[in-house]
Design a protein around this nucleic acid. Structure first.
Lengths: 199, 199
DNA sequence: CGCCGCATGTAAGAGGTTACATGATTCG
DNA sequence: CGAATCATGTAACCTCTTACATGCGGCG
């Protein structure tokens, strides 16, 4: 017999419930919410959102209604029920589960001698580019937060999560520069960019 | 018909192939390898390792032999084949896929007004404790690297991945302190630690 | 002798992504 | 009118974790 494991409960459910705190939204709206405001720490796909909404509804944690206002095509809007808000609150109070690390770039770098310095440098440069884009995005997001019509308290929390992204991204960028410096030395001393160059 | 997606190929396979670069190991050895040397950027469970080893063997990317030396019970040792090493090399050269972010602490913090400042502070303190432990572990790992009988080049790559963990952890710790300072102010101004205190 | 660590596996199921499928509306 | 975006879903598939299952060897 399999025991229930409360600690590994479906987090998508709660991400959705939380995203509904500020009023009713469609599945599509929720997707955009994740992409625009929460992309630096959470992602959900539509193939996960729609079935989960159905399930939440069958558990009475959300309610839905049809909306055809605005003349555009009908949308299905979901809102939190009292039970849904309580379920969210209970989950929020639980201590967050530690994340299990999985970083493909570091994995490849760990096998550096097999990859070769030139390959490692390429990967790091690509990573660096993505980090720089991300960093710019964070600055833009910070500006948008202040334009939102929500409480100062809510904005403070949003800024905090964003600040985490900014600080961590900056740290990664600093590390990138250091790593690239190291690898360019290493590449020069092991000759012609390492193993892959032997082919 | 479903198209094949090369970019989302099973990374467990390559993590195992890479971990076999320095000689033959059993499934159990591999698990320890991940736990001890790669825990800051990669994790694999035994329920993933054993089936994957079988699969790699059927694809001739690894070979195995039985070992009963040392008087202890028999172990099954796996080693890279030439094809396995080539498959690893090819994968290493591919540009790493961007990681999709999922950070439960930040998700909960994002819903801070519903959680309440006191809850947020508790979660952050727990997070901080884990980070401090992790930071200490990194220092210990740095010392161990130099004791390994491998090339200076290999050690350089290991140090680089470790440095990433150290820098990012330090950044997170700095952020934690800032966030706690902010929340203690917020908690004082919104009274008695927020929503949960109302129950 | 009982527990812990070593060692190897399998089974069930949750969770998640991508592609497929469909259709409306809007805008150039 | 064609493309992009809005909008809602389903199907197939993969990955991964957890629990189950089993047994040996060493040590206190």
């Amino acid at each position: 017999m399999y025991l229930e494991d409360m600690s590994r409960e479906n987090r998508t459910r709660y991400a959705l419930l939380g995203a509904l705190l500020h009023g009713e939204k469609s599945g599509y709206d929720l997707k955009k919410e994740f992409e625009h405001r929460m992309s630096h720490f959470w992602a959900e796909s539509l193939g996960q959102i729609y079935p989960t909404l159905h399930r939440l509804r069958s558990e009475k944690l959300v309610a839905r209604r049809s909306d055809r206002s605005g003349g555009s095509r009908a949308r299905t809007l979901y809102r939190l029920t009292t039970a849904g808000r309580r379920a969210l609150s209970d989950w929020l109070a639980e201590s967050p589960a530690p994340e299990s690390a999985r970083n493909e770039l570091l994995l490849k770098l760990f096998f550096g001698p097999e990859l070769g310095a030139s390959g490692a440098i390429e990967h790091l440069e690509g990573y660096q580019d993505r980090l720089i884009d991300q960093r710019r995005l964070f600055d833009a997001m910070a500006g948008e937060i202040d334009a939102q019509a929500v409480s100062a308290e809510q904005r403070a929390y949003w800024h905090l999560t964003l600040l985490s992204g900014q600080e961590v991204t900056d740290a990664r960028l600093r590390w990138c520069r250091k790593a690239l410096r190291t690898l360019r030395h290493l590449g020069a001393s092991t000759g012609r960019g390492g193993r892959r160059a032997e082919r």
